[in-house]
Design a binder for these strands. Structure first.
Length: 455
RNA sequence: GUGGUUGUAGCUCAGCUGGUUAGAGCGCUGGUUUGUGGCACCAGAGGUCGCCGGUUCGAACCCGGUCUCCCACCCCA
């Protein structure tokens, strides 16, 4: 009988009481915000048919999917010759389900399957774990929660505005002040590639440009060079890279720069309108940063793209999203435009921890512990416990007959502020001794007095 | 997937060029106080030195493999 050492799969975590209290604090702030903006919650299964998931995230994404082995004899459809055909040929024969990789694709599936019951525009939010077979590191987990809010069935830029507003509200509530919401538009990137004479290569352009913050302009030039971008194209890009100005000045500059690209100008106009809406709504542009070189990997974004970065922390982006014109197309429903974004709770948690932003005392707290010496104290305590709970006071009775010292230590460890001591005197006089463990004061009170004291 | 790094008590870590019974702090249990926590003092429990193999008279220490952790790249929340 060997005892095995327990362990957790790579990249997964347990959450203890303190962590849960803090996570719930973040989650509740987000939920409350979504709901205030008129979003409705849905949930979808942890697992989806593999065919729903594959091909939606690019080749790399497919590799990062967790696949679920078929139940029963998963080799029953496999011929010896299949083995030689390689992994991708084998996979559909042994696995038909996978864990969801994000919440957007399951949502698209949901919309298509429920199209007749949904009233468009449909504003939904969804808070559930997703799984990625990534290699874990700081701020990167294999199981983590996403908090998505999406609107489908409208092109209105009010949706983009609301995303900005929700991000600002959540961060303000959580006490995160030093951050920026980077906003850009895919059409601007398309325009950019047209203007520099590399039409249709905005994807590659984005991948390279995206590293600007990390590796600098010099290295980005090298990478563009390696990817076969012409000297002249890179040179033309230069004024964009070095562009440092406020949002309005950037817009003005780009109107000239992108004047030959119809698509680019359209993107510019969209950004401008969003900023305009922000002003009309009566909100400042604080934290909102039009970033011409912001590029996001996901292939399906077609309009606005967002990313939120908290400054002075070692965590990547804590939120991101954008507009997609035809997300449901692959599932047979054309012409449904949507825009959405996602908060990464786990990363927000890490950020708040790093910045020391969690309020004290955020574990779920018992307010009163009832201690006693013997069976009669236990019985008396049980009745008082009932009274306390009816008064809505989080309270507990020490479950075992133990030395009073041990019961006190328990209260101390759990940071319970009040202790009731029930001995023969208290039982006889029908009162209680109430000790405040923070101040150390102790007094004898009637049950009613005690309840009003600890309320 | 590529490269690098780490692993010793519940936790954070010491442990000399390989040399007897592997240490500290914190935590834990008990006591000083059988009606009182935190603080102090005293005592005690707790380790297959990640795992497997090799070198050696002798390995926590050297070598190989493996797993794990963390970091960078890729990509992302």
């Amino acid at each position: 009988m060997s005892v095995q050492k327990p362990s957790l799969p790579k990249g997964t975590r347990d959450f203890g009481p303190v962590q849960m209290a803090r996570r719930n604090y973040i989650l509740n702030t987000i939920k409350e915000t979504f709901s205030l903006f008129g979003f409705q919650q849905i949930e979808t299964p942890a697992m989806e048919n593999l065919s729903t998931l594959t091909g939606k995230y690019g080749d790399e994404g497919d590799q990062l999917l967790f696949k679920i082995l078929n139940s029963g004899d998963f080799l029953k459809n496999v011929e010896p010759s299949d083995l030689e055909k390689g992994t991708s040929a084998m996979l559909p024969k042994v696995s038909e389900k996978g864990l969801r990789y994000d919440l957007t694709v399951p949502f698209a599936r949901y919309v298509v399957m429920n199209r007749n019951d949904i009233t468009f525009p449909f504003k939904r939010y969804q808070i559930q774990p997703v799984w990625r077979a990534d290699r874990p590191q700081r701020g990167r987990y294999r199981e983590f929660y996403q908090c998505d809010a999406d609107v489908v069935g409208t092109d209105s830029l009010v949706c983009e505005l609301e995303i900005l507003l929700m991000i600002k509200r959540v961060f303000s509530k959580l006490g995160i002040t030093d951050y920026s919401i980077k906003i850009n538009n895919r059409k601007i990137l398309t325009g950019l590639s047209e203007v520099i004479g590399e039409k249709g290569r905005e994807g590659e352009l984005c991948v390279a440009i995206d590293k600007l913050d990390k590796i600098g302009w010099e290295k980005v030039q090298e990478e563009l060079n390696q990817r076969g971008f012409g000297e002249r194209s890179i040179e033309l890009l230069s004024p964009i890279i070095t562009l440092k100005a406020d949002n309005h000045k950037k817009l003005d500059f780009l109107k000239g720069f992108l004047s030959s690209s119809e698509t680019g100008l359209k993107g510019l106009q969209e950004i401008q309108e969003v900023i305009q809406l922000l002003e009309t709504f009566g909100e400042t542009q604080d934290h909102v940063d039009f970033d011409v070189v912001l590029a996001r990997g996901l292939t399906y974004y077609t309009g606005a793209i967002f990313e939120v970065k908290v400054h002075n922390v070692s965590i990547g982006s804590v939120s991101g999203g954008g507009r997609y014109d035809n997300l449901t197309g692959v599932f047979g429903l054309e012409g449904v435009s949507g825009v959405g974004f996602s908060f990464g709770v786990d990363r927000i948690y890490d950020v708040m921890e790093e910045l020391g932003l969690f309020p004290e005392q955020h574990a779920d707290q018992t307010k009163v512990l009832i201690t006693y010496f013997d069976k009669s104290g236990f019985d008396y305590g049980l009745r008082i416990l009932n009274r306390l709970r009816q008064a809505g006071i989080a309270s507990e009775l020490y479950p075992d007959e133990a030395k009073i010292k041990k019961q006190f230590t328990y209260a101390d460890k759990k940071q319970i502020p009040y202790v009731l001591i029930l001995g023969d005197n208290e039982i006889k006089e029908k009162n209680v001794s109430l000790k405040n463990l923070i101040s150390g004061e102790q007094e004898v009170l009637s049950v009613e007095e005690m309840i009003s004291r600890v309320c």
